[in-house]
Design a protein around this nucleic acid. Sequence first.
DNA 1: GGCCGTTTCGCGGAACCTAA
DNA 2: TTAGGTTCCGCGAAACGGCC
Length: 262
Amino acid sequence: MDNNYSDLELEPCSSEQSFPTTVYEDYTTTHNYTLDTLDPQPPGMARLKKNRGRKSKNSQTEISILYSFFRGQKCPKKEYIRCKIIRGQKRAIRHALNGKIPTTTIHKVNKENEGELNYWNDFANHTIDNDEFFLEMSKTVNGPKTDGAARRKGEPVSPGIQKSFNDVFCAQYFNNDLVIENYKLYLDVIFSLMEPENLIKRFDFSCCKSEDRNHFPDCHRKWNDLKDYLKEGILKDLTENSTNDLETESIEIQDLDPLLLE
DNA sequence: GGCCGTTTCGCGGAACCTAA
DNA sequence: TTAGGTTCCGCGAAACGGCC
């Protein structure tokens, strides 16, 4: 299950840290690809041609980024990304607080990789420095009703609890500077090795239909765009949407988790 | 290592929205 | 009104992790 990074070569990076990189063949030729693997059409692209249908609440940035990836015959769902990232961050926090280095899931850390380890240490230190706060916020009862202890029947849950990873839940979740700071450090862990094959295994969706380890030059751009969007764009979108959502859903502020409103 | 409770994954479809 | 598309939600299954 673990990625084996041992076959990756270490080479100096422009920053202080060193990261292993995979040596790829010349991207300027396409002789390794079949017609099928060259299909540049993202799964949802056909639908983009029409303007009919419900107006998307997503930003155009979010739409174009998600639509450029492949998950089976479709593109990854917005909620899939949200679930994975938020669940992952909370889980990573619990790992950090327990002094463990994760070896599985989206934020797995290869102890042999100094770069990944450094990013993990930054994340873990930030978490431990604010341990009381993160101990509370990482509890699964503070997730939406679909998850963890909050999902169990018959147990009391927070009155303002959301039923899914919807805009309101996400806006509440990120309504705290500490959480955002920690989230960005968490993304650094995930994206510490900016190689498509590594990220495909982490996210469980792909940037192209290439069946071997070669990728298109565009693949690196896609992953960079996703990283940038997750770091900045998603927070901006949530901030812009949260006001309207909170109003339309008549959420009473006093019902929300006080920890998330600080 | 096996068991078992907890947590996470992610599918499928209902509900909703809006252009035609 | 219909059809096409998005978002929300519930829940079964799989994975994880603690305990013995």
